[in-house]
Amino acid sequence: MATSLLILTDFFQAADAALNYATNLAAPLEARLVLLHVRRDSVLDPEMFTGQLSNLSREAIHLALSSLARDLSVPVVAEVGHGRVAFAVADAVSRHHPALVVLGRPDLTSTPDELVTTTSLDILRTAPYPMLVVPHTVRNSALPRRVLLATDGEEFTLGQFAGTARRLLNALRAELTLLRVVPQETPEADTAALDAVLRTGLTADLSTVHTRTVTAEQPAEGILQLAPEYDLVVLIARRRSFLGQLFHRSVTADIIRRSSVPVLVLPAQE
C-alpha cells in the first residue's frame, strides 16, 4: 500500500500552514495526501466555545476541498467525515493507514486553558498515532534539517510505529540532536538518553547524531528553551502524558500548545 499523510483541514489559517508543510514532506516520503474535513455541528462540541468550527454548507465544503486538491503538486484524495474529530480520524486511519496524522495548531493565545480541549489530545486518547502538529505561525514549509528529539532517558519502544519513524528520519536526511532535560546536570545524562534511543533502532541509518543536556526544573521549559534553534521537535509520548484528565497538565500538551516550531508526537508502546 502506498504511503499517505492524513491532513485535517477546516480551511482556516492553521490548516493551510499544516497542508503546505505536509505537501513538502510528502515528496521525500513518496506519499500521497488524504485531506479530511470533519463536519462538527453538535452543540456539545467543546470547540464551539473557541470559535474554531467551520459552518460551511456541504456544497461549499466539497468545492473548497476540490479547490485545495487542484492546487497541490502531489497525489491527493479528499474526504468529509462527521461527528467528533477523533472518531473521524480513527476511521480514516483504519482505512488509509497513513504514516502521519497532520494538523494545524490555531492561535490559542486568547483562549483560557480550561477551554483548550484540543483536537490533538482527543486524537491521542482515542487512537494513539504518530501526529505532526504545525503552528499557525509557521511560514517556512521547507523540509526540516535540524531535528530535536526529546527523551527522558527511560527505556521505550515505538512498536508498530518504529518503521514509520525511522523512515521519516532517514528521508529527511536531517541532523538529529537527542535532548534530555534534567533538574541537575550529571555526566551520565547524555549517555542514558543516547543509549535509550539507540536501542530502538531509530538512529541506525543516520550519519549525524548529537546529544544535549539542559538543566531545568520542568521538562517542558527545557525543551521549549531549545526548540527555536531547530526546525522540528520530536516527542516520545508515553500514555501517561496524554491520558491525564486535563490537557494542560502534561508535558506533551504544553509543548504542542507553546512550541514555535512543528512538533512530531510518537506514541510509545508500554
Rank of each mutant, 00 (worst) to 15 (best):
M1V: 13
M1Y: 11
T3S: 14
S4D: 06
F12C: 14
A14H: 06
A15I: 01
A17P: 03
A18C: 06
L19G: 02
N20T: 12
A22L: 04
A22S: 08
P28G: 02
L33M: 02
H37D: 01
R40S: 08
V43R: 12
L44H: 09
L44P: 00
P46Y: 03
L53I: 12
L53V: 10
R58W: 13
R58C: 12
E59A: 14
H62I: 09
L63P: 05
L63W: 11
L65E: 01
S66K: 11
S67M: 10
S73D: 13
V74S: 05
P75T: 11
V76H: 05
V77C: 11
A78W: 07
V80Y: 04
F87C: 09
A88C: 07
A90F: 06
A92N: 00
A92H: 00
V93W: 03
H97C: 09
P98C: 02
L103I: 07
G104W: 01
L108F: 09
T109N: 14
T109L: 12
T111R: 01
P112F: 05
P112I: 02
E114S: 12
E114R: 12
L115F: 11
V116C: 06
V116P: 00
V116N: 04
T118N: 12
T119H: 07
T119S: 07
T119I: 03
S120G: 10
D122L: 11
L124E: 06
L124D: 03
A127G: 10
A127S: 13
A127L: 14
P130V: 03
V133L: 08
V134G: 01
L143N: 01
R145A: 13
L149Y: 01
E154Y: 12
E154T: 15
E154V: 13
E155Q: 15
F156S: 08
L158M: 09
G159P: 03
Q160P: 12
A162D: 08
G163V: 11
L168E: 00
L169A: 01
A171E: 02
L172N: 06
A174H: 04
L179G: 00
R180S: 06
V181I: 01
V182T: 05
T186I: 10
P187H: 07
P187Q: 08
D190Q: 15
T191R: 15
A192M: 15
A193P: 04
D195I: 15
D195K: 14
T200V: 09
T200S: 08
L202V: 05
L202N: 00
A204E: 13
D205H: 12
L206T: 02
T208V: 15
V209P: 03
H210D: 13
T211K: 04
V214A: 10
T215C: 02
A216L: 00
A216E: 00
E221T: 03
E221K: 01
Q225P: 10
L226T: 03
E229P: 09
V233D: 04
V233C: 05
R240W: 10
S241R: 08
G244T: 15
R249H: 15
T252Q: 03
T252R: 00
I255M: 04
I255Q: 03
R257P: 08
R258K: 14
R258E: 10
S259T: 06
V265N: 00
L266N: 02
L266P: 04
P267F: 03
A268V: 07
